[in-house]
């Protein structure tokens, strides 16, 4: 049998031990990295979206340089892929996919959700995007053009959704609370 076909949990344990013995990754380093990764969540992206809805200067920064906009919200971006932000308008809706693997704006949204990594999502997003969105009950009006952004290379992409009607006068915390993970990938709209 090919050694790579070893049961995955045994392979992980053996690799983890070897990396620790060789001084490449200690158990403490791994635990620390897990804690850092667990700390990233869609709440971070939601804060950026809410701020962009309230502050035109921040919105402009976010659209021109997503990495700087994330850093301005205290999100660590150093050494991570550049972040691009796609602006939804009354005429255009964006949907993000990675057909080749599962590139995801992890720095601002955390771990990719299960569906984003699935073969069905990756296959359908580029070929039948409107049918795919129906899985979430999301209907893009006929008057709206859809732009499907395939993260094939070095950028990571998030969507800046449209601010829902009936949110006038809301503060940043209240706005951020209605922005969900899927809204920033384009499978859903923020619920006003």
């Amino acid at each position: 049998m090919n050694i790579l076909q070893t049961a995955s949990h045994r392979l992980l344990a053996a690799i983890a031990n070897l990396l620790a013995e060789k001084g490449i990754a200690s158990a403490q380093e791994v635990a620390h990295r897990i804690a850092l990764t667990d700390a990233a969540s869609p709440a971070q992206g939601a804060r950026m979206v809410a701020r962009a809805w309230l502050d035109p200067d921040y919105r402009a920064l976010m659209l021109s340089d997503g990495t700087k906009a994330a850093e301005a919200e205290g999100i660590p971006m150093r050494g991570l892929p550049p972040l691009g932000v796609l602006e939804d308008t009354a005429d255009v809706h964006h949907l993000v996919v990675c057909t080749l693997c599962s590139c995801y704006p992890r720095a601002v949204l955390g771990y990719p959700p299960f569906w984003f990594k699935s073969a069905a999502y990756r296959a359908r997003a580029v070929r039948d995007p409107r049918g795919l969105l129906a899985e979430w009950g999301t209907v893009i009006p006929d008057t709206m053009r859809l732009r499907v952004v395939d993260s094939t290379a070095d950028y990571r992409w998030m969507v800046l959704p449209q601010r829902p009607a009936r949110t006038d006068g809301w503060d940043a915390d209240r706005l951020a609370a209605i922005v969900r993970e899927g809204d920033m990938i384009g499978v859903t709209f923020p619920a006003g």
Binding site: Y111, F114, R122, A123, R124, R127
Partner: peptide, 20 residues
């Protein structure tokens, strides 16, 4: 995986799954 026919008719599991 883009457009691959065998997955075109497959439903997407939109539930969240906790990582192990």
């Amino acid at each position: 995986m883009g457009g691959v026919s065998k997955f075109i008719c497959e439903a997407v599991d939109t539930e969240s799954h906790a990582l192990t």
